[in-house]
Amino acid sequence: MPEQTTTRAPQPAPPPAAPAPAVRASAAGARNSLARLGPWPWLGPSVVLILLVVVWPVVEMVITSTHKISGLGIDFGYDGTGRYHKLFADARLGPVLLWTGVWTVLVVTFTMVISLALAQLYNQKFFGRKFTRWALIIPWASSVIVTSIGFRWMLDEVAGVFNRLLLDLGLIDSPESWTGNAAHAKPWLILVAVFVSLPFTTYTLLAGLQTVPGEVYEAAKVDGAGRWQTYRRVTLPLLRPSFLVALVINLINVFNSFPVIWGMTQGGPNTDTSTSTVFMYILGQTDVGESAAMSVVNFAVVIVMVLLFLKVSRWNEES
């Protein structure tokens, strides 16, 4: 008789053992602790980064401004407010601050007006719009210091193409030193600063224009509003958030701008074209403490300027 084999049906796997009460209590406690922390587990890394990148350098800057430190980095010890007294007694500080104010106002004003016009243009449909939008990115994509040095060589008295062009056209009799004196250099500095500021500002305003729904313009047209009235009463109020963002960022960037002036004139001749930021760098070559004091003044001016602007523009008030 052949030997018979018997097969057993597979037995179902036993159910997983329930976690011990201690494990469940531990997991629940961890979740409750995490919930009590609220958003801090996610905000914590950003706060730490801000403390390391922003707050700590500011504290170090204030401490440095109370020490007498040579341009070689030799610390002669605590000097209290001595570096501030030396800074405010410097005869060059007044003209530097005046030029800084004029520079900031003119560059920001021209940038905002031209960018608003360009944003309106690029918001329209026309042949070659994509190409012109790409072309506008070039000053932004290029290094600011490289752009500034390029303009400096273009305006060079001996080898500059600008003098060569004017001589060939008979507009000047001899080459001019366009960056060698403040009267000629300042308009060029403003021009270059506006040139490198246009891309960011234009695209910010263009993004704001593209968020305006077309139905709003249709409703204004039905109500009989003209083109200028629609622009003034519909477009500008809806563009206000983007406009304020671009304006505040431009104020801060232009006030703190260093590459344009340093790349073209290095703040000279003497300190005639130096803004407070360039002047701070120049001071650091001989007196680090005084340079830090100038940095503290710059920081305070930026904070006050932004707070006043936000107060006047009523940033938090809905229009």
Rank of each mutant, 00 (worst) to 15 (best):
L34E: 02
P19H: 08
V53D: 03
R36C: 11
F88V: 12
Q120M: 12
A91Y: 06
A35N: 07
L116I: 03
E60T: 08
R36P: 07
S65K: 12
P45S: 04
A25H: 04
L43Y: 04
G82C: 11
P15N: 08
A30Q: 13
R129W: 05
L118G: 00
T104P: 03
Y122K: 07
P15R: 13
S70G: 14
S65A: 15
W42I: 13
P14K: 12
G128T: 07
P15A: 15
Q120K: 11
V58H: 10
G80H: 04
P16Q: 03
W40Q: 08
A17V: 14
K86E: 15
Y122W: 08
N123D: 05
L52F: 12
T81P: 10
D90N: 15
G94N: 08
V54N: 10
R129E: 06
V105N: 03
G38V: 05
R36V: 06
V23P: 07
W40H: 00
E60A: 07
V108E: 08
F76Y: 15
F88I: 12
V23T: 11
T104R: 01
Y84R: 07
S115Q: 02
V47C: 04
Y122C: 11
Y78V: 06
F131R: 03
L51Y: 02
M112Y: 11
L93C: 09
P19M: 06
T66N: 12
I114P: 01
L87E: 03
T109R: 01
T64R: 14
L121H: 07
P39G: 02
T132H: 12
T111E: 01
G101I: 02
V108K: 08
L116H: 11
R92M: 15
V62H: 06
V96E: 10
L34F: 10
T100L: 09
N123C: 04
A22N: 06
E60G: 11
A22G: 14
A117K: 03
G44L: 11
E60D: 14
L37P: 05
L97I: 01
T64Y: 10
A25F: 05
P16N: 07
F110A: 12
T66S: 15
P16E: 04
F76D: 15
M112S: 05
L43F: 06
W40C: 09
A35P: 02
A35T: 05
T104M: 00
K68A: 14
S115H: 03
N32P: 00
P57I: 08
L37E: 08
T81M: 15
P16D: 04
G71H: 13
L116S: 13
A27I: 09
W42N: 03
G128C: 13
L43K: 09
G44Q: 01
M61G: 12
L72Y: 04
I114Q: 01
A91F: 09
V105K: 02
W99N: 15
P12W: 00
V55Y: 00
G38N: 00
A22S: 11
V55D: 07
P14Y: 05
L97S: 02
V53K: 02
Q120F: 09
L34S: 11
